[in-house]
């Protein structure tokens, strides 16, 4: 186990290096120049000075190296103009995004798992077909469409919930927090439910054909218990894998949804950093997300062996 752990950690480091290096390259490919953004009306000399000040005149690799060196030491850089520390921004915005993504993931699974289990048990029934059709419809709705529809109807027309969440200090009292978080969470959740439900459903259908399910039935175990205690666990490996990989989609979705609802999360900060060409800040945000993503999937690798004891042994043999 320590050896696999080391390997995983090395993989994490490698992924973060590759991701940040590519992002760094991409920022350089962006047309325009941060200096013209900061002092659009400065003279050529002023601009050259600023460029030297910010280290933008140095070669690409040197710039990347400097950022990386600071990042590793926990200094995530500063905004060019305001000199605001990126660390403080992350401290306030990351929890907001995490909250949003956790809620979305939690509710997507909370709805998808019972749906997957029950539709698999009644595969082919009217209930199954109805649930599948509904979920497909939701899957076809991109989250920005859902977000905008919610903002227009629930927020603006019916005035049920606030459309702009940029005022929420975090953490707020739970109820207030919820009034701000509800619509972003719903917008982010809906599309995920269908994916999770359909995955679990097909795996459950296969599991329910297994001999050990007949054994459980022949033992006199009630159906409900067979579904939840015997069939769900062996059926959940694919779901778990995808739930982990889907964190990527959630991050993408969070960027969109945070912008629609003005949620002061990392997604919003990333958009701002891209538009304002705040390279060091952007770099650090991307790196944080990459670390988050790889760590979640690392945790899921460990969860496999919790869910399926056969995987534990496969590992020790290998």
């Amino acid at each position: 186990m320590p050896r696999t752990f080391t390997l995983k950690f090395l993989r994490l480091v490698l992924v973060v290096l590759v991701v940040t290096f590519i992002t760094f390259g991409l920022t350089k490919l962006q047309p325009g120049d941060p200096v013209s953004k900061i002092i659009p009306f400065g003279t050529a000399q002023q601009k050259a000075e600023l460029r030297t000040d910010l280290g933008l005149d140095k070669p690409f690799i040197a710039q990347y190296g400097k950022w990386l060196g600071n990042f590793v030491q926990g200094d995530f850089g500063k905004y060019y103009d305001s000199k605001q520390s990126v660390n403080t921004v992350i401290k306030t915005s990351l929890p907001v995004s995490l909250e949003l993504m956790l809620y979305a993931q939690f509710f997507a699974l909370l709805i998808a798992i019972p749906l997957g289990v029950t539709t698999a048990y009644r595969a082919g029934s009217k209930y199954d077909r109805g649930a599948n059709a509904t979920m497909f419809a939701l899957l076809a709705l991109p989250n920005f469409v859902v977000a905008l529809l919610l903002a227009i109807y629930v927020g603006a027309k019916w005035q049920l919930l606030p459309t702009q969440s940029n005022v929420i200090p975090f953490p707020l009292n739970p109820l207030d927090n919820w009034t701000y978080m509800l619509m972003p969470v719903v917008a982010l959740t809906l599309g995920q439910i269908a994916v999770y439900m359909r995955l679990l459903r097909s795996d459950m259908i296969a599991t329910l054909q297994e001999d050990f399910i007949t054994t459980a039935k022949a033992k006199g175990i009630p159906t409900r218990r067979i579904l939840w205690r015997h069939a769900l666990r062996p059926s959940s490996l694919t779901l778990l894998t995808v739930a982990g990989l889907n964190v990527g989609a959630l991050i993408g979705g969070a960027i969109v949804v945070e912008n629609v609802f003005g949620v002061p999360g990392l997604g919003k900060r990333i958009t701002e950093a891209i538009l304002a060409k705040q390279y060091p800040a952007l770099q650090s945000y991307v790196a944080i997300i990459a670390i988050l993503y790889v760590t979640v999937n690392f945790a899921i690798d460990i969860l496999y062996s919790v869910l399926d004891p056969r995987i534990r042994n496969a590992r020790s043999v290998a």
């Binding site: 001999d211 007949t214 022949a218 006199g220 666990r233 399926d308």
Partner: peptide, 21 residues
């Protein structure tokens, strides 16, 4: 009745037991 009054031993013990229990 199942398990209590009547029970069954199945053909293939490799697949008849729950692998994760």
């Amino acid at each position: 009745y199942w398990g209590d009054q009547m029970a069954m031993v199945f053909q293939d013990p490799m697949t008849s037991l729950n692998p994760v229990m």
